[in-house]
Amino acid sequence: MAFIPSKRKKHLLFAQEELNLTSMMDAMTIILLFLLKTYSTTGEIISPASDLRLPYSLSTQAPHKELTVSVTRDNILVSDQRVMMVDDIDPRSTMIGALYTELSRRAREAKQNEIQYAIPFTREVIVVADENVPFQLLFKVIYTCGSSEYDKLRLLTIRER
């Protein structure tokens, strides 16, 4: 048989409890500080892709935002726009035709901008390549970049610590 609820306790006033947020505030403050510490103002250099895994390096030089040439497992991209497929590269020539055309066009534009708006043409290009890209393809990309006036290459890597 169920107990009869106590008649005496029925009239106890429930005090209005405030939600205790102090501990939550503590956690929030720590998260805030942590996020402020890792805050980056340079903006995104690469957009993550499933077929692009950067190699690890001990280099500590910080990257700047520049024109990017990405070599993923299947595609070649310039500034996140696909230029061509890796499979379409002519295996006999060192120069990658479509990439050369695109980079030369951008170099011309950059030079125009330098004359008209005094935006300096740094000749720098960030090469974002997948860690499994073969040397032959990498060499072709480097050669094509060098031929199309982007001769200061920056190989993007993940900092190892």
Binding site: M28, L35, Y39, S40, Q61, I142, K152, L153, R154, L155
Partner: peptide, 23 residues
């Protein structure tokens, strides 16, 4: 917190410089 989470850098990137002789 969402703003900072959005712009947080979880992977530190670095570069290797490779200067080619001018074309």
């Amino acid at each position: 917190i969402p703003i900072l989470l959005y712009s947080a850098e979880f992977v530190k990137l670095s570069i290797r410089e490779l200067n080619l002789p001018p074309a």
